[in-house]
Design a protein around this nucleic acid. Structure first.
Lengths: 334, 334
DNA sequence: CTGTTAGCGCTTTCAT
DNA sequence: ATGAAAGCGCTAACAG
């Protein structure tokens, strides 16, 4: 592998000039630059990342910390962020944290220390202590899906989303409205709690029952949603409508309803959250949120800070949600 | 951030000893090692990755090249690989290549040059030229989902899987069997072709019709599967059974069938591929493949090569598939 | 506009 | 078992 010295020698200039020419810095004669470029190409030269990192202190890398690469939502967010980062010339380091042990190890060792110019953390509700550790990294930190004082954050208004769903079902005249949540305990996501609280408030404000007997846990998965709905149906007085806080769970719930000969949108109404690809095809009423965009927005903010932008106050961007009414919601059948 | 010199000074030893002690190399007195460890911890020291890479020539990083982080299959493979790599102390660099342009750029610049000790490429059917470029990286390269001469590869027997599905439907007595494939042209995956060919062979061998008029393209997505099934149903003489080469498409197909009042498993049989989480809940007959395991297996092989193992012949591992018969397949109804 | 010269923070012989 | 010292390949002042 050719080094910068090989290029310099062959081009008849100094290494400094090669470095400048190749990185597009000013103060290089256009002719020289062209010449250096040609020689570098001939030699198939590419600057060693570790050498330039060591010398410059920059890594040209951004770390993304994510629970469950496997989940649709996170995959989308990652790919949104990845594209922005890649385009800006940054590499993406992936840290997947799928259980409490991994999380502990991650924060204990912070393997990304010194490896990234910025960090993007998805959905993990970073504790005060963890925030401290991340800040100690000395690079900009961005959060998607929840906030923490002092850090960039991008997300949606979960309360508003949940309220939209709840109010829609209330307006249709439902009196017993269930909730399929996803508590995912080991990683302690905040989203489920936030949505649940807002959801309950709407019910209470409308004089409707709410609470554990109308709620079930679906772990954010299709199978979990199916189980949760089945459980709700087995309760003494089952709901006539449910709000599932993810589309995947909502679709699982629809499956359960059909299995019980309860047509979604007729016997029981269902509202999901996300506007997953399946929602449209299945005619599922849902609270739509921009997903990839949360990743790309966060990545852009992060890069701005990397290149010196120092906002006066922590940047927090809230992307809009909206209710998409489709066929799975209707007035109660009786 | 403390450097190795700080630790050495404070511990009263040389930097060489610190380096050895902290990396667990031999020839360090146990007492010294313990002492150095303690001091390092006090100072919150972590060796700079770029400095050690530069000095040692190793990066402790593995790159994963993947199309569509967003797709269930790839997410699973990544997380399988990630776990093995993380456990072995390697970081994961993610390169997502979701269209032909990105692919071209990637191979033109090979941004991972010098950044990784090994490369894992998922599903991209690497052309001879691309294989050359990857080999030129000078690090072990592993492939998941297809093979190339000289490179490690891990996958399943796609022919066998497709045959299993086809034969099952033939045995049930179906005479017109459709195929929902996913050609995904821009990236030219080989999997769809392989499965289609094997599938057609079985039909032909059994004297049954096959070919384009019984096939439709579903792009590996739920919505695509739904469209593909709808298209098949609109043809002059629609199939009484279909094989979708992914579960997500199979589930989409089931949706289409229901919309046409054709109960899957009664009016029309459906077989999927993957054994996605949804398959069990939806009672979908499918060809099961180990997914995360393909990632972890490939990662392990790669790491073995990184640490010097030189197999005599290219390593190719084929993981087993099996047919799981569930409720969506039955003899033709008429 | 270009060259010289120090490092960046580690690893790795080679001595001792 | 430990230390001294020479780089690894690049960037960033500083001169000119």
């Amino acid at each position: 592998m050719a080094t910068i010295d090989d290029v310099a020698r062959r081009a008849g200039v100094s290494t400094a000039t090669v470095s400048r020419a190749l990185r597009g810095l000013p103060n290089v004669a256009e002719a020289t630059r062209e010449h250096v470029r040609r020689v570098a190409a001939e030699l198939n030269f590419a600057a060693s990342r570790s050498a330039s990192s060591l010398a410059s202190g920059r890594t040209n890398t951004v770390a993304i910390v994510v629970p469950h690469v496997t989940r649709w939502f996170f995959g989308k967010v990652i790919s949104g962020a990845e594209e922005v980062l890649r385009t800006a010339g940054y590499d993406v380091l992936l840290y997947s944290i799928c259980d409490a042990r991994a999380r502990e190890r991650f924060f204990a060792k912070l393997p990304l220390r010194g490896r990234a110019d910025a960090v993007l953390v998805l959905a993990l509700p970073v504790t005060a202590e963890e925030v401290g550790l991340l800040e100690g990294l000395g690079v900009p930190v961005g959060l998607v899906g929840h906030r923490a004082r002092g850090l960039i954050s991008v997300g949606i208004d979960d309360e508003a989303g949940a309220r939209l769903a709840a109010q829609h079902l209330v307006n249709l005249g439902h009196k017993r409205i269930g909730l399929i949540t996803g508590d995912d305990d080991p990683l302690r996501f905040t989203t489920p709690r936030t949505r649940r609280t807002a959801f309950r408030e709407v019910l209470r404000a409308n004089g409707l029952p709410s609470g554990p007997e109308l709620e079930a846990e679906g772990g954010f998965t299709f199978a979990g949603g199916e189980r949760a709905m089945t459980e709700l149906l087995s309760r003494p007085s089952p709901p006539t409508a449910v709000f599932a806080i993810s589309d995947e769970m909502a679709v699982g719930a629809m499956k359960s309803l059909r299995r019980h000969a309860l047509e979604p949108g007729r016997a029981v109404s269902v509202v999901g959250f996300d506007d997953h690809e399946m929602a449209e095809v299945l005619d599922l009423t849902t609270v739509a949120q921009p997903v990839a965009e949360q990743g790309s927005t966060a990545a852009s903010l992060l890069l701005r800070q990397v290149s010196g932008h120092r906002p006066d106050r922590p940047e927090r961007i809230v992307l809009p949600v909206r209710l998409i009414v489709r066929g799975t919601t209707a007035p109660p059948s009786s």
